[in-house]
């Protein structure tokens, strides 16, 4: 399980996170929503220490990441897959090489095993026929599906999604959301930052509403969307729904 305890994050004099505490249980799908600049992405990035919290603790399976040395952080990160808004595929590697690189390098899989696993994943996201292409030949939606497969190739126990559809053309959003949804149905523990409210309603066990560096509400999607407690959340939902 993931526990974030009283996480603060400053960028210079800007306070981005102000005391964020959140538990994510095994098998849970937590969707974080909120206005731009509310600290959603920064919080997500604190979970795998892409950002170092200024204060507070992040525990993954009872290991406090903040106190770990760099090498050990790298080790814990193997358990936490991450998907970025802008994909960040390795442009100099083919789709297949993108998928087998980390399993071979980090998990010391043999090439045969890694390729087998990668091909199964590409099949799952419907892109096996693209395995020998370079990323710049793919559409945005295809890139993001490859990026999801790349993260899954490490067989992570948790998946973090940082606005996975925000950089996509509208007609490609669905193909990516479908992949994420089937992942949710398979029981993967996930934290998703998104602006797709319909999707949030559909896949989330828990919706977390953030504003101004704080968690204002944390509830089931049904309760949150039909009956938000805070004025700020009401205001936010009115504007976007």
């Amino acid at each position: 399980m993931i526990k974030a305890e009283h996480v603060f994050k400053d960028f210079g004099s800007t306070k981005v996170l102000k005391d964020v505490t959140l538990d994510i249980n095994k098998g849970e799908v937590v969707v974080i929503i909120g206005p731009s600049g509310s600290g959603k992405s920064t919080f997500l990035r604190c979970i795998n220490l892409l950002e170092q919290p200024t204060k507070g603790n992040v525990l993954i399976d009872d290991q406090d990441l903040v106190s770990l040395k760099q090498k050990q952080v790298t080790k814990v990160r193997e358990k936490v897959g991450m998907v970025f808004q802008h994909f960040h595929l390795f442009p100099h590697k083919t789709v297949l090489d993108n998928l087998i690189y980390a399993p071979m390098k980090v998990k010391k899989l043999s090439k045969d095993e890694a390729v087998k696993r990668a091909e199964a994943l590409l099949e799952k996201v419907g892109l096996l026929d693209k395995k020998n292409q370079y990323p710049n030949k793919l559409s945005g939606g295809q890139k993001q599906r490859v990026a999801i497969a790349r993260a899954l190739a490490m067989e992570p126990e948790y998946m973090l999604f940082d606005e996975p559809t925000s950089a996509l053309d509208p007609e490609m959003v669905k193909e990516v959301l479908d992949v994420i949804q089937s992942l949710a149905e398979s029981g993967m523990t996930m934290v998703i930052v998104t602006h797709e409210m319909g999707f949030a309603k559909q896949v989330a066990n828990k919706v977390v509403f953030m504003d101004d560096g704080r968690i204002l509400e944390s509830n089931t999607p049904a309760a949150f969307f039909s009956n938000p407690k805070t004025d700020r959340a009401k205001d936010f939902l009115e504007k976007i729904l």
Binding site: L50, V80, H88, H92, A102
Partner: peptide, 25 residues
């Protein structure tokens, strides 16, 4: 910068990341 982050998030250490991902680009 996303290339560093993607590699780190996959659990790739500093040296292999530099050698295999960053320096070739």
């Amino acid at each position: 910068k996303g290339q560093f982050e993607a590699a780190s998030a996959l659990g790739v250490g500093y040296w292999p990341m530099m050698r295999d991902i960053i320096l070739p680009q």
